[in-house]
Design a protein around this nucleic acid. Sequence first.
DNA 1: TAAAGAAGTGAACCATGATTCACATCTATT
DNA 2: AATAGATGTGAATCATGGTTCACTTCTTTA
Lengths: 206, 206
Amino acid sequence: MSYRPTAKTRARQKAQHESLLKTAVSIVARDGFHGLTISRLARETGIATGTVYKYFDSKAHLCAEVFRRATEREVDMVRAASFPDQPAPCRQRLTDAVTIFAERAILGGRLAYALIAEPVAPAVEQERLIYRKAYAGIFEQLIEEGVETNEFPDQSPSVSAAALVGILAEVLVAPLGRGDAATDQSLLIDPIRKFCLRAIALRETA
Amino acid sequence: MSYRPTAKTRARQKAQHESLLKTAVSIVARDGFHGLTISRLARETGIATGTVYKYFDSKAHLCAEVFRRATEREVDMVRAASFPDQPAPCRQRLTDAVTIFAERAILGGRLAYALIAEPVAPAVEQERLIYRKAYAGIFEQLIEEGVETNEFPDQSPSVSAAALVGILAEVLVAPLGRGDAATDQSLLIDPIRKFCLRAIALRETA
DNA sequence: TAAAGAAGTGAACCATGATTCACATCTATT
DNA sequence: AATAGATGTGAATCATGGTTCACTTCTTTA
């Protein structure tokens, strides 16, 4: 034999993979998954279309990674708000979690819409479900705890958690799909927060 | 001249249009919008593909009509529950509306999923937004009334209405997209109803 | 520097499915 | 029955965009 991939080589490999992913996310942030095509990704990255396939098995895999990359941090933030280091009452943590989600979704703009609401191919939708479940799982755990400590009235944690996800997606993100971006989204945060508190904690304030 | 479309002709035209639409809805009910292709529609209707275009300008138009056809009745049912002939307290009407939506969605099964949650082409998504807005409009009016009569606590009717739509879509219909159909959906109705009542009316029962 | 294994290239290929169109057939009028 | 307008036909055409592949160009090792 006479060639072995070396550290430097593999670093370049990884860097290129990274670069592609970064470009892909930026395309999605601009034009959604709809705008993400292999040839455009190649063009913007400055390589040939075929080369993309040296780094990703298929477009589905690429989309999945883009999705993962863009969503993981979001989920982590919501998780951190739900289960902070400092102890806090469940209703406060719920409020914080909703707030964090909302603020970041608003900040994310087009990207948030792509991740949460944009119509996408079934393969991508599959990935999306994973992250919806991730959010739901966090909420569910929090609600369970709240019910146990009697901070929250008796309820189905799984249903309530899914409902929260639905609320956030529909109220906050779906409007981006329409021209409704006119509305100042930050005005939505407070009503949403209150709505969620009433629904989960049966009270108006944290 | 020597030919003028007559009543009988136009009746046949209309019947054919109707027949196509009916077949299209049935295809969507079986395999979603994903399964609706012009050639399949033609095949199942027993005509040539080209003929479909004598009745629909484009697939987008066809989908829009399918959507309209399948959704209009649903919206009407929810509207009727929200604004019944007999006077009733807003919280009761809210409960009824949610219940009707839920029961019909469960009955609708695959079709409900296609209408509410299935990933679809942007053109169809556009149509979907119209009907989401229709539901939201009904809820909004009802909530407004409830706030005015002090049955419901002060809140943003538009936000609360959108939230309701999100809840129903996510909790009830989205699971159909996964294999979660295992769960008996009718068990979801009561928790959802209670969740919505808490959120909107700040109480647990109608 | 020669050989082997990677990585890069981009035009060709393929799959899907909507849309068209030249032609045949039907229906209503004269 | 002859004709004009309408409708029906379905194979061919288009459009889009993912995927492949024969080939070139690097990298590393001997």
